[in-house]
């Protein structure tokens, strides 16, 4: 019995060693698929999942796996050696932070923050956020959507304060969808996917409200990673992004 346990443990450890070695060298053979690991900002969840599906269909034998989180968190993970092949960031600042592990990057799309609210309780202007009776939330300034939100709020002269500074845009959107708040500063893309029960209004300074998204291949990425990045820049990839409400790269 004891010998069986030891043997099983040994086998398990050997199998773990085998699979990680294969992934590290990026080797693909006709039996196993090439896996491309993409770290992407949470605001890219729906679009990149769709892009991943289209890419897999167009490139048989590939498997795209995603890790969606705040760009600043992902940059930290990449610097600490996380096995990402591609990094799609919601801010140039986070891409710069990870630059030591990135071979090259370029801007592939842009997004802007808007003020979103339930359609049956609309805000008439951005300055409504100054009203203490309005409960609103935004991202914390340490994350890209928060930096854009702060810049846009400042340029519109908003002095009111939010009831929470969330660590990423998905949790901000979640609070709006749960109807716990009257307004939320989220990306235009999140406002769009929130559905017809929600509307949004624009900030007056669109430059301050806009954030550019760079995408880059990491230093130890497997050879297919660049093919994925090229797909994001292709007409098919760009269409998915534009349909969701993202802006042009420039």
């Amino acid at each position: 019995m004891k010998k069986a346990i030891v043997a099983a443990t040994g086998l398990l450890l050997a199998l773990t060693g085998c699979s990680s070695a294969t992934e590290a060298s990026g080797v693909s053979n006709s039996v196993t698929e090439t896996t491309i690991t993409v770290f992407a900002a949470s605001s890219l969840t729906e679009t990149f999942t769709e892009i991943g599906k289209q890419f897999e269909a167009a490139n048989p034998g590939t498997n795209v796996t995603f890790s969606f989180a705040a760009s600043s968190t992902l940059a930290e993970q990449i610097l600490a050696g996380a096995p990402a092949d591609v990094f799609a960031s919601a801010s140039e600042k986070s891409m710069d932070a990870a630059v030591a592990q990135i071979s090259k990057s370029s801007v592939f799309t842009s997004n802007r923050v808007v003020v979103a609210f339930p359609a049956d309780k609309p805000l008439s202007a951005v300055t409504d956020l100054n009203n203490p009776a309005i409960k609103w939330v935004q991202c914390d300034r340490q994350v890209p959507c928060g930096t854009a939100a702060d810049a846009a709020l400042e340029s519109d002269g908003i002095s009111g304060t939010p009831v929470s500074l969330e660590p990423d845009v998905k949790s901000v959107t979640g609070k709006l969808i749960a109807l716990e708040v009257d307004a939320a500063i989220i990306y235009a893309t999140d406002a769009k996917s929130a559905g017809s029960e929600f509307r949004s209004i624009e900030f007056s300074n669109s430059e301050k409200a806009t954030t550019r998204y760079p995408i880059g291949v990491t230093l130890n990425a497997n050879t297919k990673a660049q093919v994925f990045v090229d797909f994001v820049f292709s007409e098919a990839g760009q269409k998915v992004l534009l349909d969701a409400g993202f802006g042009l790269p420039s």
Partner: peptide, 24 residues
């Protein structure tokens, strides 16, 4: 985080502070 949110001085606890401070 889900129920109370994360506002400094009101609802931001030590673990949340660590999470936010981690990057910057």
């Amino acid at each position: 985080l889900t129920f109370a949110g994360s506002l400094p001085g009101v609802t931001r606890t030590l673990p949340m502070e660590v999470y936010v401070a981690m990057e910057v």
